[in-house]
């Protein structure tokens, strides 16, 4: 196999993992451009990759950087007065492309987005995406111990916020 074909293979295999990660990270459904960006970056950097990590781990760590860059840009755009960049905003952030979940999950998601970034990141990777502690540690560049303790604190913080805002958690209602 030609080395560059690997990217296409990986896209078929892990494309949705990357997509899902970016969607939950940014809160948008229309993150195809970001997915494209991630795999293009991977294509260009492939010669430097050579089996350092599992492909999925590697792709997700690229995705993470892309998502962080994206949110920085988004903050810039948000900061400008609406009149100046109104057209940009409406194009970029049309509400119909926002990520919408079932009611109860939406509340959890909304509350989670108010937590600090490290908490959000570990919750998205470990719980929503279901990635192992080991892989998460590699993606975030943390130790495994840090992933575990941060996850624990994040869950605690989220639970506290949920109960403070009087939103009781009905697991049953949410899953079905």
């Amino acid at each position: 196999m030609e080395p560059d074909d690997r990217i296409e293979q990986w896209f078929l295999r892990y494309g949705n993992d990357v997509y899902q990660y970016l969607a939950y990270f940014t809160g948008r459904r229309d993150v195809e451009d970001l997915v494209q960006e991630v795999f293009t970056k991977a294509l260009k950097a492939l010669s430097g990759y050579e089996g350092r990590a599992q492909p999925r781990t590697w792709l997700l760590s690229i995705a993470r950087h892309a998502a962080i860059d994206h949110s920085r840009k988004q903050k810039m755009i948000d900061w400008f007065p609406e009149t100046v960049l109104g057209f940009l905003r409406s194009k970029e952030r049309s509400p119909e492309n926002a990520l919408v979940l079932k009611e109860q999950l939406q509340e959890v998601y909304h509350t989670m987005n108010q937590l600090k970034r490290t908490y959000r990141e570990v919750l998205i990777l470990r719980l929503i995406e279901g990635i192992s502690t080991e892989e998460t540690a590699e993606i975030l560049g943390w130790s495994e111990a840090k992933v575990s303790t941060t996850l624990h604190r994040a869950v605690k913080a989220l639970q506290k916020r949920m109960s403070n805002s009087g939103k009781e958690v009905h697991l049953h209602d949410a899953i079905f």
Partner: peptide, 28 residues
């Protein structure tokens, strides 16, 4: 806390639309 964890774990799996997938592959 376990319930909160389970809730997060029950977030739906998101997938790209097939047409978009093809677009990405062509661009790649």
């Amino acid at each position: 806390e376990k319930q909160v964890s389970s809730l997060l774990q029950s977030f739906p799996t998101l997938r790209m639309e097939e047409e978009k997938q093809r677009e990405v592959i062509q661009q790649l």
